[in-house]
């Protein structure tokens, strides 16, 4: 009995960042479970989710780290940025303050990830258009000026959620194809073969894609 091969060839590490209450965990949950969590508690720590997707016929495993948004955890969550191939930066279109803080999140991302990390800006809660506090146009302009990909999405309705995660993966995959992303770099956030993550003693060790797992 034989079955067509099914396996994935890459692991991409994502982080989801942004202010408290913008819906980071709900976006992750909508993406992995296709469900909306209506009374999602604040994330106190870093949640972890995984899903296998397909890009250009390649199976890719997304390993998604959803970080706590509270300011007091900022120092600790910074240590999770390392080795991320994709960063989803989220704000809430109904709360301007979450938009205003984007530059600080962006600074952290740029400082703590490598240049090829794909940053995707998500304006969440677009189902609440009536309560809108940030226009699509100004966010789009901010994204363009900073070279970010951008959509408005809704973790509640599911609108654009799949797209945001998939587009990010496509962009990363493109970078690999173009050779812009060096898979051998310890912090590329991409592993080319399933590998054993192994134990870790500090945050840093684990955030770094294990070098020996790359066989490319």
């Amino acid at each position: 009995m034989s079955v067509g091969p099914y396996n994935y060839s890459y692991i991409f590490k994502y982080i989801i960042i942004g202010d408290m209450g913008v819906g980071k965990s709900c976006l992750l949950h909508q993406f992995t479970e296709k469900k909306f969590m209506s009374d999602c508690p604040h994330t106190i720590g870093v949640e972890f989710g995984t899903r296998i997707i397909e890009v250009s016929g390649q199976k890719i495993k997304l390993q998604i780290w959803d970080t706590a948004g509270q300011e007091r955890f900022r120092a600790v969550t910074r240590s999770y940025y390392r080795g991320a191939a994709g960063a989803l930066m989220v704000y809430d279109i109904t709360r301007r303050s979450t938009y205003n803080h984007l530059s600080s999140w962006l600074t952290d991302t740029r400082n703590l990830t490598n240049p090829s990390t794909v940053i995707f800006l998500i304006g969440n809660k677009c189902d609440l258009n009536a309560a809108r506090d940030v226009t699509y146009e100004e966010a789009k302009q901010f994204a363009d000026e900073n070279g970010l990909m951008f959509v408005e999405a809704s973790a509640k309705s599911g609108e654009n959620v799949e797209e945001a995660f998939l587009e990010t993966a496509k962009k990363i995959y493109q970078s690999i194809q173009d050779g812009r992303l060096d898979l051998n770099a310890a912090e590329s956030g991409v592993q080319h073969k399933p590998s054993q993550p192994g134990g870790r003693n500090t945050l840093v060790n684990d955030q770094t894609a294990s070098k020996d797992s790359c066989s490319c």
Binding site: M1, S2, V3, P5, Y6, N7, Y8, T50, K61, Q63, P194, S195, Q196, P197
Partner: peptide
């Protein structure tokens, strides 16, 4: 829970 273990064996498991 370690994620990779069953994945590495994924194809076998599927078969």
């Amino acid at each position: 829970a370690q994620g990779a273990n069953p994945i590495a064996a994924r194809e076998n498991v599927i078969q």
